[in-house]
């Protein structure tokens, strides 16, 4: 009972600093959340893109269907390869017309090269593997040109890593700042309650008992900050969803982890400070 009531004491004594602590925790987690959301969605996009990762090997005119079939069979035996299909000139044209829909007229009378379309197995679609398989396919003498989403994929991978690192750096900085502010808040609270604390000690309260309300308050601030961050992240996601691009949100497990991390920031900030200042009272 009492610790919970006491936990509100610093909130009442220094509302500004307390609000600041909560806000910085919220910013910390918001930074994690926002950049995490970017990373998550790039990951999702990569997964979807990777489903479509194809190496398309265009063959020179005049290659016989037998040669192409032979090569396709060979390629299909590569361990990374899921399937390798021969696409004739006619099929290529039909597919192009279908994909372009209303603009199919563009291809009227055009000739598209025949190709071998190679699909890779799941888990073998990272840039390095794609590149390796592509260069093997290119070794066939009648393969004229190779197309694969090389640059795209590499860029997305890099973007995801940058988003992850930026979020981590920014989030950790804010976490540090919030711990320092929580420390300052606690210092004031401890000093304001110096008399009460000294009486508590005199009548036999243990250090753990005296510390508890301060730690609880730290945890409470962390959780409130976490909820605030969750709200901010969710609102940002809503805006992005509406105006830019459809996105996915964190699952419940990640959200819980975020709130837990907020509580941890609050707890650590309080614990460090309360230990140091109680010794002086």
């Amino acid at each position: 009972m009492r610790p919970f009531r006491d936990a509100l004491i610093t909130f009442r004594r220094s509302p500004l600093l307390s609000a600041l602590s909560v806000t910085t925790i919220a910013f910390s987690l918001f930074a994690f959340g926002l950049f995490g959301l970017v990373a998550l969605n790039i990951r999702e996009a990569l997964d979807r893109l990777e489903d479509r990762v194809e190496i398309r090997a265009f063959v020179t005119d005049g290659t016989t269907p037998e040669q192409i079939a032979q090569a396709s069979g060979d390629i299909a035996t590569y361990p990374e390869v899921l399937s390798a299909a021969a696409v004739t000139q006619e099929q290529a044209l039909a597919r192009a017309q279908q994909e372009l829909g209303d603009f199919r007229d563009v291809f009227e009378g055009a000739a598209l090269p025949a190709s071998i379309d190679v699909k890779l197995r799941a888990g073998m679609r990272d840039p390095a593997t794609v590149k390796r398989v592509a260069s093997r396919v290119k070794a066939f003498p009648f393969v004229d040109d190779i197309r694969y989403g090389e640059e795209w994929i590499e860029k997305l991978y890099r973007l995801r890593n940058i988003a992850g690192i930026a979020g981590l750096a920014l989030g950790l900085s804010f976490a540090l700042v919030s711990m320092i502010i929580i420390g300052a808040t606690i210092r004031m609270a401890v000093l304001a309650r110096a008399k009460e604390i000294s009486i508590m000690r005199l009548v036999g309260a243990t250090d753990a008992y005296i510390r508890r309300p301060f730690l609880l308050e730290g945890v409470a601030k962390g959780i409130v900050g976490g909820l605030l961050a969750l709200l901010l992240t969710w609102l940002s996601r809503l805006l992005i969803d509406r105006f830019i691009i459809k996105t996915v949100f964190f699952d419940a497990r990640v959200i819980m982890l975020g709130l837990l991390f907020g509580a941890l920031i609050g707890l650590l900030g309080s614990a460090v400070s309360v230990g140091r200042h109680l010794r002086r009272v």
């Binding site: 000690r201 005199l202 009548v203 036999g204 309260a205 243990t206 250090d207 753990a208």
Partner: peptide, 13 residues
């Protein structure tokens, strides 16, 4: 410090 706290519960100051 815990034992000191326990001791003080048996003292009046």
């Amino acid at each position: 410090s815990r034992e000191v706290a326990k001791l003080r519960r048996k003292l009046g100051i």
